[in-house]
Every structure is written in C-alpha cells, then in structure tokens.
Design a protein around this nucleic acid. Structure first.
Lengths: 264, 264
DNA sequence: CAGTGGTCTAGACCACTGG
DNA sequence: CAGTGGTCTAGACCACTGC
C-alpha cells in the first residue's frame, strides 16, 4: 500500500502549506482520516458489496494505529450504512441485496396490515429509452444538457392494484448496456441490480414530496380518475462521494397506503 | 442516590429470577444501564431542558464506572437528540427553544429560496377547545374514549400566503391550563412552550403522509379551490419513555413548497 | 488558567460465530 | 477452539471555552 501512513509520518492537521487568505485547515482526528482511507477502498471497489472487510486488528496493523481508532472509524461507516457489523463474523460492505434493507428507500406502507408480509410489489416495465438529458435532468444529475441518459418507466402494483408510477433517469455512461430485458428479467431490488451489474451502489438519497393531481397519463396507468390526488416523490440518489446517480420521480396512490417518516 | 450501583453490586444480566418459560434476559452492557439511569434523571426533571448535566467525570464518580463508559452512554443520548454536547462547555439537555432545531419537525421548505431566511411563519390560532376524545384520538394518544383532550386549530402562513392548516390534539391532564390566550401571545415554537409551561419535551415523532383533496373547510382556510391536492401529514409525537403526547394533523399546500426527506 | 468534552492508546476480558 | 466484534478500564494528551 503506497498510501499507508507510516508511524513516523502520521497525518496531522495543518501539514503542508495552504493559500494565504484561506482558512487554516480544520483539525481532523486520526479516526476520521482512517475512515477516509477505508472509504477510498470502498469506492475503489477493493471490497465489493457483501464482502467482508479486513478485521479491526488487520486494519489497525495496516494503518499503524490502535484497534480503538479503527473501531471508531468503522463505527461511523456503520452509522452511515456503508458497512454492517456482525458480531462474531466480521464487518461487511452494505448491499441492497437484502430483504430487510428494501424499505429503507421505499417508504410506502399499507395503512392497515400490521405486517408488510402481504407480498412484494408486482413490477411492470413500461419502457426503457435512450434519450438526451433535458436541462433540468442534466442539472440534477451533474451532466450537461444533451448528454446521453436512460429513462425507465414502470408501474408497481400491490395485490393487483397499480399503486406507484415511476419515471427513472440514469446517466448513460455508468449504465451502458442496461436494457428493458435486463430489467424485466430481473427479480429483486433494482438497486441490487445496479450493484451487481454496474458496480454502482446507492448510498443516500434526498426526496422532495408534493401533493399533485393525476394527469391523464398517470390516471390511466394507476387506474384513478384524472385529478385524483397523488403523492409526487422526487428522489435524487447518490453513490459514494456524493455523486448523484439516479433521478426518480414517483407518483404514489395513497388511498390505502401512506408514506411513513420517523422524526427524531 | 439510593439507586446508585455500588462497585460490589454491579448490575449484571441474569440477575434475579424470572418467570419460567420466559426468555433469559438479554445481555445488557454497562453503558446501556448508565444510559438508562441518566434517562431516568432526564424524565424525572432532575435536569431541565437547556440545563447542563454533570460532567463526564462527575457522572463516572457517581455511577462508579470509568469515564469511557459514561462517555459511550452520553454518546447514545446525543445521537438520540436528547442531549447536546458542546466541547469546552459541557453537555446540555436538548430543547426546542433553539433556532436551528425548528426544522427538525417542520419539513416544509420553499422550492426556490436557497436560504430559508424568508422569515418565520405567521401564525393564527383559529380555536382552542376542550373536548372529549373520540375513539380514534384516544387510541393514538393512549387515552380512553371520552377522556378530556384539548383541540387546537391554527393556520401558518408564509409571506402572507396561508400554507399550513393544523389540527392538534393534546391530552387534557398534562396540558391543564392551556388556553387560546397562552398560545396566541406566545412567540417561538409551540414545542418550546410545552417545555417551559408544562414540562413536556417532545423527543421523537412518527408521520404518516398522504395526498388528499381539500374539503370545503380546508379550501376556505388555505385559499385554494375545493379538491385542490394537499399533503396530509399525520404526526404522533412522543415524550420520554415512548409516551404519545400529541396528535397533529396538518394539511400542507405544496404549490411552491415541498416536504423534504433525507434517506440514508 | 482550570474545567469541559474529544482523541488515542494498550490491554484485559466478554459474547458470538463457525469449524 | 480460534477469530471476530463488543465492552470496560486507566491514563495521557489535545482542543475548546470562559474567566
């Protein structure tokens, strides 16, 4: 490891020079720097989603720090949902290919059913097209207007009732090769497919929620009257490094379901 | 402190007997038990919102554990937003009487305004009535049907535009003495008033969000057409100990604002 | 300057998992 | 049983605040 710090060369704040007029570099504790190094390895794909990362003692040896310092770094990565700790087994790179993770991004729950074990959503892909990014889509995805993007539209149904209409935009380059067939033949979460097929892991997302009336298109696909109130959920998802990687606009029927949010 | 554990009497798992057939008590680390003790003091009002709690060394001495153990307990209380740490000063009981805390519960942001410095909401109380709890309100607040409750209705406006219509139910007993005048003459967050006047601190909340059409009443108060899509936000707020203390149903106009949610 | 929280270490021991 | 993460301790030192 060329970048491994040596004991005689600890990474210290204020090291090196900086432009006059700029603020002095903030103090950065060792464990934060270790966290940064582990993060770099995650981004670089040194350990893939589902993989076990080296043990705390191994990492402590690698970075020449104490186990406690590595521990604190991993603690933060765990609360960021980037890794998962399993006592007695090890620490693993988080993945969307797990049942209990599904509802971290899909927050629409049935009003009644105590358990959400009323089956998974039935999915129907409407189309998957190659387009040029509009100004708005480009801005949000960090592209330039006219850049290649993929657009996917699909409907999710629960118990036969069409409930969610989604329009998804993906940057063309990282998702080269994604086709309707790939999507249609896949079972399991779409974000798991992104991980396994394109090496793109969604890490966090930001949603803007509004109430809107169904237009003719949405009304038809969701089997409601035109003007029927729907939840509009616009989600921008980010991969490592705060890079936006997916723009998604969902229209949710909330007749018998609701969007659940916990404030704390 | 009658309940302070002594060094010869550490609180250990499996202590005491338990009913046959029940599961063996789960292992509970020391720091969790310390957290529990601190929590009890918070609930009992030993330290009030805004107060500084004893230093880590003081608490370590009081509970006869190491500073590191107290530290981990306080760490969890801090991530639960029950206390706030301030380096060099101390650890303080969290309070809603702070500017930057406001938007932890009110998540409606302007679509455009980069900064939310377009002023606070103008508030108008419509009414404040003493009622008997309906079955539904009683169930959610953990009361019995017919128990005394307070109902407050109010409208929040931004820049003169009525935007939020709220209906609030409070259990009668803890909020005895709350009147329209109290509410109307108060500036500052309602939850701060609850803390200072009634000793009730809201700790977390759960929201159910739907899209609905405005009824005649809401349409009039929010100055929109009947049937206009509105966000319905039903919030149940809890105080310490997971005790529900407020039920609130808000109708939000989302023409120029949106409900923001961060997924991570 | 003293007092607070924040970092880092080294080491002991515990709880959990799987072979 | 060995290997993993989880807890707990004791002590040193650092960064920040306010007097």
């Amino acid at each position: 490891m060329a970048t491994t710090p040596t004991p005689s060369d600890p990474i210290t704040p204020g090291e090196g020079s900086f432009a006059p007029g700029s603020v002095a570099p903030a103090f950065s504790p060792l464990y934060q720097q270790i966290k940064g190094l582990i993060l770099r390895s995650l981004q670089a794909g040194e350990w893939k989603p589902g993989d076990m990362i080296p043990s705390e003692l191994d990492l402590a040896a690698r970075y020449k720090v104490s186990q406690g310092t590595v521990r604190k770094a991993i603690d933060e990565l765990a609360t960021d949902n980037l890794v998962v700790r399993r006592q007695g087994k090890g620490t693993f790179v988080a993945t969307h290919a797990e049942q209990h993770i599904q509802f971290r991004f899909l927050r629409l729950l049935p009003d009644q059913g105590t358990l959400d074990e009323q089956g998974l959503a039935e999915r129907r892909i409407i189309d998957c097209r190659r387009l040029r990014a509009s100004a708005e889509v480009a801005r949000q995805l960090g592209l330039r207007t006219g850049d290649a993007v993929l657009q996917v539209r699909r409907v999710l149904a629960f118990g036969g009732t069409p409930t969610i209409l989604e329009e998804i935009w993906l940057p063309g380059t990282p998702f080269k090769g994604l086709t309707l067939d790939t999507l249609a033949s896949d079972k399991g979460p779409m974000y798991a497919l992104f991980e396994s097929q394109f090496g793109v892991r969604m890490v966090r997302a930001s949603e803007k929620i509004k109430a809107v009336g169904a237009d003719a298109d949405a009304a038809g696909l969701l089997a409601v009257a035109e003007g029927h109130p729907l939840l509009s959920v616009e989600r921008l998802s980010y991969t490592y490094n705060d890079t936006p990687m997916e723009l998604r606009r969902g229209l949710y029927r909330t007749d018998t379901r609701h969007y659940r949010n916990e404030l704390s």
